[in-house]
């Protein structure tokens, strides 16, 4: 039985080589499940469940726990222990943040939201490394 892992970040890219500068094949979303095929350093070659094409993903995006977005009793019944299952959106979550904001109206999240919208493209990063005479991933010692 090949090992299955879940995506534990909001969104990540599946790439054609084990590098952040490699071409993106497709995107994976939170709680997507993948089957591990190969390991290379901190990168895993995976195939998402019910999808044809595999690719490379950094291990920090994956959890050994099955992440369940909307858990029903069947998911819970079929888990052997709490070590195997994580419920998305439980504990400290969006609702807790909303309630925190209600209690602490002086705390302003505007700039936190703005910061999170700053996206640097892969091309910008590649050019930044190249122009700066820096090491692109995989070229380093």
């Amino acid at each position: 039985m090949a090992a299955t892992m879940s995506v534990q970040v909001r969104k990540c890219q599946l790439r054609d080589k084990p590098s952040f500068l490699a071409k993106t094949i497709t995107s994976l979303a939170y709680a997507d499940q993948v089957t591990i095929q190969q390991e290379k350093d901190d990168w895993y070659r995976v195939v998402p469940l019910n999808r044809p094409n595999g690719g490379w993903v950094h291990v920090s995006a994956l959890s050994k726990k099955k992440i369940v977005l909307k858990p029903g009793s069947r998911d819970i019944d079929s888990a052997a222990s709490s070590d195997e299952l994580a419920l998305a959106g439980k504990g400290f979550n969006e609702q807790v943040e909303k309630d925190f904001k209600k209690k602490n109206k002086n705390v302003d999240f505007t700039w936190v939201d703005k910061m999170e919208k700053i996206v640097i493209s892969q091309v910008e990063m590649q050019n930044f490394l190249k122009d700066g005479g820096l090491i692109a991933e995989g070229e380093g010692a």
């Binding site: 534990q8 970040v9 909001r10 939170y30 959890s63 992440i67 994580a86 998305a88 959106g89 504990g91 400290f92 979550n93 969006e94 807790v96 943040e97």
Partner: peptide, 8 residues
């Protein structure tokens, strides 16, 4: 903590 909770 899950990365999701760490994020919040």
């Amino acid at each position: 903590f899950t990365p999701e909770q760490e994020y919040y």
